[in-house]
Amino acid sequence: MQRRKIPSTGEELPVVGCGTWQTFDVGPGAAERVPLGDVLRVLFDSGGSAIDSSPMYGRAEGVVGDLLAQSDSRDRAFLATKVWTTGRQAGIDQMQRSMRLLRTERIDLMQIHNLVDWQTHLPTLQDWKKAGRIRLIGVTHYTEGAHDTVLAVLQRARLDFLQIDYAIDDRHAERRLLPFARDNGIAVMINQPFGGGGLLRKLSGRKLPDWAGEIGCTSWAQILLKFVLANPAVTCVIPGTSKPDHMRDNAHAGVGSLPDATLVKRMANEIAG
């Protein structure tokens, strides 16, 4: 799998990871958890490492922590989670709980979820980074309407990462956020690369275009992910899934060639209109 540098550290991150919203919010039963363990195994075996979660995602953090412990694979994971509450002490308490659930003494990437009380949490994240409890800090959002505010935060705060929505039918981030991140050394993690899922469902019944083979794509999911990865500002994309076969399919998007500028334009015209 291809890897891209995190500008603030120079370390390389595999370009396809795994999101856990909804998909990892499950109970303790083997029928629910065994497939998720297989999802993580496929992620790692494919060369990926990023796993993104949040206290907002129900039981997902605990499930990830349990599965990594059971497979003794914490050292293979780039663990990203979030703080999603108001107030300094509430934020500290929540992050400590996340670390217990994830069964780790250090979080690779701690993000302020949807900018909730970001001015309060940022100093805490900076202090924890200096102390080595977290390695990287960032902010997240998932709606176009918040992009102006996100940009203002990026201009004010010193951050390692931005997590934002971007897809072939959701290209608003191309206007200012992605160029700003590229020009200012901020790594970018992409959520909702399938446009929230609706686009992928709509495309599933269509024949793959003739040019799919030119970039090594054998599925619509790979086409949509390679479109996102074609933007050089993007560091990693985190499609969520609970199915090992889908994880394997997604991971293949990180292998081989990516569309050039001409093909990117054609893809956007033919798929998103």
Rank of each mutant, 00 (worst) to 15 (best):
L67D: 05
E61F: 01
F44A: 09
S98N: 08
Q89N: 13
F24N: 11
Q89L: 12
V63I: 13
M99C: 12
D66W: 06
G91H: 01
A30N: 11
M99Y: 05
R59G: 08
V34D: 15
R88P: 02
A30P: 07
S54T: 03
A30W: 03
Q22T: 14
V39M: 02
T86E: 15
L40S: 07
R74K: 12
L79A: 04
D38H: 12
R41F: 01
G29E: 14
V83M: 06
R33H: 05
L43E: 05
A31T: 13
D38P: 00
M56L: 13
T86I: 13
S53I: 03
D45M: 11
A31W: 06
L36C: 06
W84A: 15
D93Y: 02
Q89D: 15
A77H: 02
P28T: 04
L36S: 02
Q70W: 02
E32G: 07
A50L: 15
T23L: 09
V63E: 09
A77E: 05
D52G: 08
S98Y: 04
G91M: 04
A77R: 01
P28K: 00
V26N: 08
L40M: 12
D52Q: 08
M56I: 07
I92D: 07
M56Q: 13
G27H: 00
D93S: 12
V34Y: 07
Q96I: 09
V64A: 12
V34R: 14
V63S: 09
